[in-house]
């Protein structure tokens, strides 16, 4: 039995990743993982400058009492893409919280694409997630989060429990984007037009680090496939997309298409190559 599992408290998993750029190549220079986290070997599907990593959660999901922390540090000018191998699951809890806290520090000129797969929140789950990113001068961050509330394939609705997700992006001690989303499990929220409107899937894509022009906003809007479910707006230093619908593959496809135009217009990367799309996404 691994030391990080405690019968009274659940998993106390930790993941620490440090990246650095040396002569045009980004390396994972330090990796520490404590179960249930595991990190696969870095790979370079689009050349040595951008390091790809897939994070595994070996337990397959989180129960009440699990507390995971992730720390990622990008040294100047490193370029990193991280995703996860599978969807994350948050199981029903009889009270205790499942929590995942992520802290990311980005040095000058670093670029991070933080693109985990979706999280499925079982009815009755009690989940809290925090993501705090500190951007250095000239660094850019693109991230998304996708949630499915209830195992809809089984006809389950999210009417018990609670989800809280807090995303904060800061630069020079000034917040660039603060998102405080909670979804209390109840029929009101699930059905109201103001809340989930009967839609079990929500998603947010955020890009921050430089002002975007209205042309890019129009492009992101033109990629929308379901208009009532989707919206795009501009942040002071970036772009925000929101989705509220029924299909995780629909939101992933749209976000991926927006990600491609952000990459080619703002990250000065080459037009995305097919091999740059993580295979684990399997859209």
């Amino acid at each position: 039995m691994n030391q990080s599992f405690q019968w009274d408290r659940g998993w106390q998993g930790q993941l620490r990743l440090v990246y650095a750029k040396k002569s045009d190549s980004t390396y994972l220079t330090h990796a520490y993982h404590h179960a249930p986290f595991k990190i696969q070997r870095s790979f370079y599907p689009e050349g040595k400058s951008i390091c790809h990593n897939i994070i595994l959660h070996t337990a397959g999901g989180m129960v009440g009492g699990d507390r995971l922390t992730t720390d990622i540090h990008l040294h100047p000018h490193s370029q990193v893409l991280t995703t996860t191998a599978t969807a994350n699951r948050i199981y029903r809890s009889n009270g205790p919280l499942s929590a995942h806290h992520v802290h990311i520090k980005m040095d000058e000129g670093a670029t991070l694409e933080y693109l985990p797969q979706e999280t499925i929140i079982f009815n009755g789950a009690n989940y809290q997630q925090t993501l705090r990113v500190e951007l250095g001068t000239g660094s850019t961050f693109i991230g998304w989060e996708i949630y499915r509330f209830g195992r809809t394939a089984r006809g389950e609705k999210f009417i018990q429990g609670e989800m809280r997700s807090q995303t904060e992006l800061w630069q020079d001690k000034v917040p660039l984007w603060i998102d405080r989303q909670y979804v209390p499990g109840n029929e009101d929220i699930f059905h109201s037009a103001h809340g989930l409107s009967g839609c079990p899937v929500v998603g947010t894509l955020v890009f921050v680090g430089m002002p975007v022009d209205s042309d890019l906003v129009s492009q992101a809007r033109s990629l929308i496939t379901s208009h009532p479910s989707s919206g795009v707006t501009r942040l002071e230093q970036g772009l925000l997309c929101r989705f509220r619908g029924h299909s995780t593959s629909e939101v992933k496809q749209w976000f991926m298409n927006v990600w491609k135009i952000l990459r080619s217009n703002y990250l000065s990367y080459d037009i995305i190559k097919t091999q740059a799309i993580p295979r684990v996404w399997q859209l």
Binding site: R164, Q166, R180, Q181, Y182, V183, P184, I189, S192, A193, H194, G195, L196, S197, V202, P228, S229, S230, G231, R242, R244
Partner: peptide, 9 residues
């Protein structure tokens, strides 16, 4: 915290 997906969209 808030829960206002409808307003945001």
């Amino acid at each position: 915290y808030c829960c206002n997906w409808g307003l945001s969209l």
